[in-house]
Amino acid sequence: MSTIYILWLRQLKKYSRSRARVVAQLVQPLLFLVAFGFGFGPVFERAGNGSYIQYLASGIIAQSVLFTAAFTGAELIWDKQIGFLKETMVAPVPRWQIMLGRTLGGATVACIQGVMAFLLTLLVGFRPTSLLMLPAGLFFTFLIALFFTSLGTAIGSKVNDMQGFQLTMNFLIMPIFFLSGALFPLDGLSSGLKAVTTFNPLAYGIDGIRGSLIGVSHFGLPSDYLVLGLTVLAVFGIGNYLFRKIQI
């Protein structure tokens, strides 16, 4: 227990000491919010879908969460390079506890970042329809965070250099994000795109946040919860397995 806690705390301390990172990881969602929100807003409304900011906010929250969470993988590679990972890997504690502490720490940081993105969306005019459902929204946010910290850890365990990590992430994270319904509604898509989004776990996460915050859901909250929950378990399992196998 104390192992998991101390490594969780470490992630939070590192995050709170890096103001540049806090700001940088908020700039991108803000840019998306302003450029897409106000840029596509009029078209979206003319198509009869209502306010685009209302729709987009959930996607932007998820975006800031997923990029912050995936960054955990970069931290893992960094810890390999500065040698700190060795220090934890020879400690007399099971490696799954080390991985769990790091993952929960990364996920918590990502959730904090998500909450800040949520506050940003309020600034540009987003209004959640139900305050009672905010905790549910936070829960989906946390699942998304866990999914991407585990994914980042899985990749960071296998890859040893930052460039390789960036490349893998771009190939993986960008499509997952753009084909998730973060930016456009999933109703009435062409069958190809529909198939892709159906197999995209992030689509369920964002749908879950959106369902919680504005009461509009494509898959329905129970399926969102089920599909995302199961994929989180699977990816966490893979991340844990690869992390335990690390040789330095």
């Binding site: 810890d79 040698g83 060795k86």
Partner: peptide, 12 residues
Amino acid sequence: IVFQDPSLDDDL
């Protein structure tokens, strides 16, 4: 163990 190469967390 005390490693040959550094293994501290510089942020802490």
